[in-house]
Structure formats: C-alpha cells, structure tokens
Simulated scan of single mutants.
Amino acid sequence: MAPVTPLLTNGQYPLLDVFWTMMWLFLWILWIFLLVRILSDVFRSNDLGGWGKALWTIFLIVLPYLGVLVYLIARGGSMHRREAQRAEDADELMRAYVRSAAGTSASTADELSKLADLRERGVLTDAEYDAQKTKLLRA
C-alpha cells in the first residue's frame, strides 16, 4: 500500500482540484452574500413584527442553507417590491429636500417689496432704502 502524501507535494496541485476549490470558494462567497442580503431584507421589512424578524433570524442562523431556501420561496418575490419601494422613498425624500432648499431663497422682487414695506412703515430712511436697493440690484 502506497503512503498517503499531502496534495501540495513538490508544488503539485492538480488543475481539476484548483477548479473544484475555486467553485466551492465562489459558492461559499455567494451564499454569504445571499445570507447578508436576506438578513438585511428581514430587518428592513415593515410587514414583519419583532417576533417574525427574530424567528427568521434564528432560522437563518440555525439552519442556514435551508433557511435561505425557505425564505426565498416564502418571501423572495416580495423582496424586489420592498427594495423598489425603499428606492422610491429615498428618491422622493431627496427630491423634497432639493425642492425645499431651492425654494427658500427669496427673489430680488420679494426683497425689494420687503424694503419698500419697511420704508413705508418708517423703519428705514430713504437713504437706507436707496443703499439697500442698490446693493440688491448689484447682486
């Protein structure tokens, strides 16, 4: 009977073994990515309560491969809808922020009407009004 030698004897590692190792590494990384994606979907989901999130998390940790497959079968179709809704909400928040930031600056006409109102009420003198008016029109 021949002695058992390690795989890396004299720097030799069969090409098929390299491909096999690469495949298993790829599948392991893919599974990790899928697990992280599913856990983030569980915790971001608004339709699951605290107990539902806890049970899914326990199921995914205790029986990881089966848990991922069951989650994809049970809730996989709605993962896309939830992600699209989150993207729409984020887009709407950004648009609202831009609208509010752009709409807060007053126009020159508004500023001039405020200055004229202050002059009429006697808060500004004619010289102060003319100086502020000139300053606004230059800008």
Rank of each mutant, 00 (worst) to 15 (best):
L63H: 04
L35P: 04
F26P: 06
L8W: 06
M94T: 05
R75S: 07
G76I: 10
L115W: 03
Q85H: 03
R81F: 11
H80R: 10
R82I: 08
A101D: 02
E92I: 06
L115Y: 03
L34R: 09
A102M: 06
A90Q: 00
L16W: 09
L55I: 08
Q132P: 14
A96M: 02
F59C: 15
G76Q: 06
L55Y: 12
R119W: 08
A84V: 08
I73A: 07
R81Q: 07
D89A: 00
F19T: 06
G11C: 06
F33E: 00
L124F: 00
R37I: 05
W24V: 10
A96D: 01
K135W: 14
R121V: 01
G52I: 08
R44M: 07
A127N: 12
F26A: 10
A106E: 15
E92R: 12
E120H: 07
W56S: 07
R121K: 09
L136C: 14
V42A: 04
G77E: 06
A54W: 13
Y13L: 10
W51G: 15
L15D: 12
R75G: 01
V123H: 02
Q85G: 06
Q85S: 02
I58S: 15
D41K: 05
L115K: 00
I38R: 00
Q132C: 13
D130I: 05
S45E: 01
W31G: 03
I61L: 15
V123S: 05
L136G: 14
A54C: 13
L34I: 10
L48R: 01
G103C: 11
P64G: 14
V123Y: 09
L72S: 02
I32F: 06
L30N: 04
S40D: 14
D117I: 07
S78P: 00
A90K: 01
I58V: 15
Q132L: 15
M22S: 03
R81A: 03
I61M: 15
L124I: 10
G122A: 00
S105C: 13
P14F: 03
R75P: 00
A101R: 07
G122M: 05
G11H: 01
Y71N: 07
G49R: 11
D17E: 13
L63A: 15
S78M: 03
R81E: 09
K53T: 00
D17N: 09
R44D: 04
A96R: 12
A127M: 11
I58C: 15
L39K: 13
R75N: 10
K114N: 14
M23K: 13
D126W: 10
G52A: 04
L27K: 02
L25M: 07
L27R: 01
I32S: 12
L16F: 08
A127K: 11
A96C: 10
W56Y: 15
V18A: 02
L60S: 06
G77S: 04
A54K: 14
S78H: 01
G76P: 06
E128W: 08
D89G: 03
T57I: 13
R99P: 05
M22N: 02
